[in-house]
């Protein structure tokens, strides 16, 4: 009894801590994104609220919370309000199995990777509900794009992850990290560069980030699936986007970049540094590239990533069998 209670208490702390990580990192990420955008465009970015505008995101969050929740006439009440919650809710279980440090894992499960892949699928459902429930044609187009995109890109993503799982022989993220060593040539990216590339492209696409931000493509679909959302409805989608970025980058770090394994600094800091490097690259992409067209997006997936992922998977399997 006491052991189970202990376990439960531990999980509770983990959930609360994860929620805190999500909230704080979202604030940091949004600030980072604006600053990077600003400096790339040779302007300062947010500058007025707080020193160098650090409190700008907080001010924006307060503004979003203060807005009246508004549902357009003819929108489906249940779907419309459920969608943003459903978009954000999976963020917690997604972050639980991730090993932030040698002993910093919220939920040590053997099938951690499966858990993450399973819960990440909910996002597509949320976008679909938002698009359909809004009773808006732009949103509908956005939702249709979101579903096709998520479903398509999940497959090569899965394959690249599987190649790593083949090599390490486990689906437990902590064990995958432990399998790798502290130096870069010990990391999985060294043995699986192609898988990492595929994973990263798919991760950007899965999180609907530019240049794959077609479901919201504001120059085409005004705002895509969240056209009709304002206030906290929009805020939750926004939060979900950044949390998803955090999740995919954490998984990438754990799978390919040796997780917390690195010399000199304590593991937790290394993990953070690696995550934020990946996040910076994703942000950098957004402020550099034009958007793909929808058919090009799917072509890239089905004609390039999928065959490459498959080949990589088979190659890995073959090599594992031989050696």
């Amino acid at each position: 009894m006491s052991y189970e209670f202990h376990r439960f208490f531990y999980l509770l702390i983990a959930v609360v801590a994860t929620a805190a990580v999500v909230a704080v990192s979202a604030l940091i990420l949004i600030y980072l994104e604006r600053k990077v955008a600003g400096h790339v465009q040779r302007r300062p970015g947010p500058f007025e609220v707080g020193p160098h505008g650090v409190l700008q995101t907080v001010a924006d969050a307060l503004k979003l919370m203060g807005k009246q929740p508004f549902r357009p006439d003819g929108a489906d009440r249940l779907l419309f309000w459920l969608a943003p919650i459903l978009a954000f809710a999976p963020a917690l279980p997604l972050l639980l199995p991730i090993p932030f440090g040698p002993v910093l894992t919220g939920l040590e499960v053997n099938l951690g990777l499966i858990l993450i892949l399973a819960f990440s699928g909910i996002n597509a459902l949320a976008l679909c509900m938002a698009g359909w429930g809004s009773n808006n044609k732009w949103a509908l187009l956005g939702a249709a794009r979101a579903v096709a995109q998520s479903v398509g890109y999940e497959i090569p993503l899965l394959m690249s992850v599987l190649s790593v799982a083949f090599m390490t022989g486990t689906l437990n993220l902590s064990k995958i990290v432990a399998y790798q060593g502290p130096w870069p040539w010990h990391w999985n990216i060294f043995t699986q560069p192609l898988a990492f590339l595929i994973y990263f492209v798919c991760a950007v696409a899965e999180t609907n980030r530019a240049p794959f931000d077609l479901p919201e493509a504001e120059s085409e679909l005004t705002a895509g699936f969240h056209t009709e959302y304002s206030g906290m409805g929009f805020g939750l989608f926004f939060l979900a986007e950044y949390t998803n970025m955090l999740v995919v980058c954490s998984v990438a770090t754990a799978l390919f970049l040796g997780g917390w394994q690195a010399p000199f600094l304590p593991g937790f800091w290394w993990f953070l540094i690696k995550i934020y490097l990946l996040l910076l690259i994703i942000i950098w992409f957004r402020w550099t590239f034009p958007r793909l067209r929808f058919d090009q997006l799917l072509n890239l997936n089905w004609k390039w990533l999928l065959p490459l992922g498959l080949a990589n998977l088979m190659g890995t399997a073959l090599l594992m069998k031989i050696f």
């Binding site: 990077v36 400096h39 790339v40 465009q41 040779r42 302007r43 500058f47 550099t288 590239f289």
Partner: peptide
């Protein structure tokens, strides 16, 4: 060409701002 694009924005990131506060 994508890498070259990243190089352009990356260089601008490192350079001074041109706007007036």
């Amino acid at each position: 060409s994508l890498v070259k694009g990243l190089k352009v924005t990356g260089t601008c990131f490192a350079r001074d701002q041109v706007t007036v506060h």
